[in-house]
Design a protein around this nucleic acid. Structure first.
Lengths: 226, 226
DNA sequence: ACCTGAACACCGTTCAAGT
DNA sequence: ACCTGAACACCGTTCAAGT
């Protein structure tokens, strides 16, 4: 075994202004995306930043404040369609897909939002845009508000569902297990489940299009009003 | 100060068969509903059962296994409409409302599901029933499968949204803060948000009906197909 | 002002021991 | 077989101290 080599980087005292809120948030998001929500630890975050654990506390009150800031920052990165067309429905679709994409690309951010109350001013720009588009599509003020909540609910639920599904599927042999369990079911108790087994199985492979399929039906249901 | 009174119940050794999986799950659910997911601790669970921390490990492999069992058990308690009517849409509505009710009545169960992959055989009875009703409503096999996923996504998302909203609202002065923030917004950047402020505010009070409003529109969108 | 290590009160779980 | 306490490797955070 080597002797002169220091084994665990004996980090020197970091220079005075290595840290700032932005650098910390960048590292937090990277950590969350790479290792998942349960690995998002003050100690891990500090190590990723090459700094003592307590250094972070000079810039944020604690872990909760960092989590809030991460959520805020991610929600602000949702890209909105730039041009105003005369197709509010198409634009609405785009906005919803943007939100959905954000959550599926940052699954741990979603988990983060799911485990703490939403602050009121999250994603103001997105909400404003959705409301405007719903009104332009002909909805009353009240229906626009209800519709936007509905779309957000469906989108959050879909992202949650997809990411959980993805996590489950990447475990060893879950696929085969699910199939086996399905075909072992008593046919008299679960007739529809059995007869739709083929569709249920192949449904697992089409997560991407699934969100859009439902989205289109929701938009249709929203606008087929008087 | 009293002297002869033992201050912290100096629990005697528990008799041999005080514990069993069912009693443990009951206590776990009670604990989750009463104190929330973050208070759901092996030590707290054991204390609620009047037993040493490690006693629970004789019946479950660990906390994860208990969490899975809790989720399973709750999902099995969803009540399905008993009689088969000739109104598949009405029944479908009932089933969805049952799922929604379960999640809003056991918010921590939802958090639990959100933070771990779904096991495949959760809620088989519910899924089978939904599929059957969708087919009876005239949908093809593939559309029934897609429709059931869509309904579950919307329902899970709604429950998550509502419970988070509720948690936020019961915090001190969040209401006033939200209103203040809303009216302090630059009107040129968020025109729709500003002009719909009244609707947005009063929307906060109508969480219950909100789910059903969207549900009806989803069902309409699902069935207005060829 | 900003960064540090030691210490505190937690957590899930392992382990050897009691009955 | 079932229940136990001590111990281990974690966690977020407080605190007094360095620079």
């Amino acid at each position: 075994m080597s002797v002169s080599q220091p084994v665990r980087s004996p980090r020197r005292r970091a220079p005075r202004n290595t840290l700032n809120p932005d650098r910390i948030l960048d590292a937090a998001i990277a950590l969350l995306d790479r290792d998942g929500a349960e690995a998002f630890t003050m100690r891990a975050l500090a190590e990723q930043l090459g700094v003592g654990t307590m250094a972070v506390y000079s810039h944020f009150r604690g872990k909760d404040e960092i989590s809030d800031a991460v959520a805020q920052r991610l929600l602000d990165t949702i890209e909105l369609p730039h041009t105003e067309t005369d197709d509010p429905l198409g634009e609405l679709r785009e906005v919803c897909l943007g939100v959905y994409r954000l959550f599926t690309e940052h699954p741990s951010a979603l988990q983060l939002l799911a485990s703490r109350p939403l602050r009121g001013d999250d994603a103001m720009a997105v909400i404003d845009r959705m409301l405007a588009l719903l009104r332009r599509a002909g909805l009353s003020g009240g229906d626009a508000v209800r519709g936007h909540v509905m779309l957000m609910r469906y989108t959050v639920g879909s992202a949650l569902w997809s990411t959980q599904r993805d996590r489950a599927l990447c475990e060893e042999g879950v696929r085969e297990q699910a199939l086996a369990r399905l075909s072992a079911l008593p046919a008299d108790r679960y007739p529809s489940l059995i007869s739709l087994a083929p569709e249920l199985i192949c449904a697992q492979d089409d997560e991407g299009g699934r969100y859009e399929w439902g989205l289109d039906r929701i938009l249709r249901g929203l606008l087929s009003d008087g």
